[in-house]
Simulated assay, not measured.
Amino acid sequence: MSLGPTTIVGDRFDYSAAIADSWKQQTLLNIVKLRYVDLPVFVDVASVVSGYSLQTGVTLNGTVSTDRAVQGNFLGTVVQGVYTDRPTITYTPTTGQSFVHGLMEPIDPKNIFFMLQSGYAADLLLGMAVESLNGVRNRSTAAGLMREADPAFVQAITLMREVQAAGAFTMRVEEDKAKGPTAVILLRRDGIPADIVDKLAEIRRLLKMPATAQKFTLIYSPVRGANDELTVNSRSMLQIMAAFSSYMDVPDEHLRDHSALPAIAQPNGEIPDPMLHIYSGQKKPADAYVSVRYRGYWFWIDQGDLRTKRALNAVMLFFTLANTGSKEPLPLITIPAQ
């Protein structure tokens, strides 16, 4: 019997579950830290090497005596087994150019809209990943200050979700000899219900897009571009996580001592209902999707809050899209778990 195959089922799923849980916790912790103006730190699991050994042995000994011997006959058996599990886990701190590119470089607008094509809700994804569309501004946490979104932006991305569900817009990548691969958004008219056509017209009005054009080139820009362009001021990972942290419940104690950024308030002083929600409390939650402890408090996402869970998963996926830095030799920390 071979030992190796019997370990695959348990190890593969146990390690994948442990890595996934730690990734969620690390992401949430860094989001929380940004609300406290603290530096996010990322440590990746570079490799897991698990070694097993099983040694078994049986020893049989005995003595056969003569008829005159006092001790008589003797038979002894010794069974021995030694099982060793010695995993070695290697961690890679994210530093240098990889850290700078991954955190501070804006995500390619093309990748954001590819995620829309794959089924992510437009209002959730665009609300997290873009600072503005055609110059119409989203909710922002720039320069340590929090500003609510332009009403036109909120209305536009809400309508885009309904248009998205109806299949009224699509995207393709076209090759341009001068510019290289270019993403193009196509707005459909044929075979679309009248109410969806009206919503498309309203989106055009809100985002200041031409009323008749059906093809728009995606361009990264903070301001409105040409009539055949849809300018997207996409966020970096640092901006996305900072925006996510603005939906966090900060303990009153930390607001009083000014150790965390305050919540966004409307001109009338009211705080709007959060689109996402990170809870906080002194007791560890019993059944949270993910929870972390920071500065004496627990912060968590509720297991039943599907919208915030999807948002956290999107942030984790954004990290793979934002990983544009060159692969350079990095310091390794190897801890034998014995």
Rank of each mutant, 00 (worst) to 15 (best):
M1W: 13
S2K: 14
P5M: 10
V9M: 11
G10R: 11
D11T: 12
S22P: 01
W23G: 05
W23L: 10
V41K: 12
F42I: 11
F42P: 05
A46I: 07
V48I: 15
V49K: 11
V49Y: 10
S53Y: 08
T56E: 05
T56L: 06
T56C: 02
T59L: 08
V64M: 08
V64T: 09
S65F: 04
S65M: 05
S65R: 07
T66V: 10
A69R: 06
Q71H: 07
L75K: 01
G76N: 13
V79R: 15
V79C: 01
Q80Y: 10
T84V: 14
T84G: 04
R86H: 14
R86D: 13
T88S: 14
I89N: 02
T92R: 15
T92S: 11
T92H: 05
T95H: 03
G96P: 06
F99V: 08
V100M: 10
G102V: 03
M104P: 02
E105I: 05
D108I: 06
K110G: 09
F113G: 02
F114V: 12
M115N: 08
Y120M: 13
A122H: 02
D123N: 15
L124E: 08
L124D: 09
L125D: 01
A129W: 01
S132F: 01
L133S: 00
N134H: 05
N134M: 03
V136D: 00
V136F: 00
R137L: 06
S140E: 06
A142R: 15
A143P: 00
R147H: 11
E148C: 10
D150M: 14
A156W: 13
E162C: 05
R172C: 04
V173G: 02
K177C: 02
K179G: 00
G180R: 02
P181Q: 01
L186S: 01
L186H: 05
L187W: 10
L187A: 05
R188P: 00
G191I: 08
G191A: 06
P193A: 09
A194K: 15
D198I: 11
E202A: 15
L206E: 03
K208H: 14
K208C: 04
K215T: 13
K215R: 14
F216E: 07
I219P: 04
R224D: 03
N227G: 10
N227Y: 11
D228A: 12
D228S: 14
T231W: 00
V232L: 01
M237Q: 13
M241G: 00
A242W: 00
F244Y: 12
M248V: 07
D249N: 12
H254N: 10
L255H: 02
D257Y: 01
A263F: 06
I264H: 08
A265L: 14
A265E: 15
N268P: 06
G269L: 04
P272S: 00
M275Y: 12
L276N: 01
K283H: 11
A286D: 11
A286V: 08
A288M: 04
V292N: 02
R293M: 07
F299N: 01
I301E: 00
D302Q: 09
G304S: 09
R307P: 03
T308Y: 05
L312I: 11
N313R: 11
F319I: 06
A322Y: 02
N323C: 05
T324H: 03
E328V: 14
T334W: 00
T334G: 03
I335N: 06
Q338G: 09
Q338H: 08
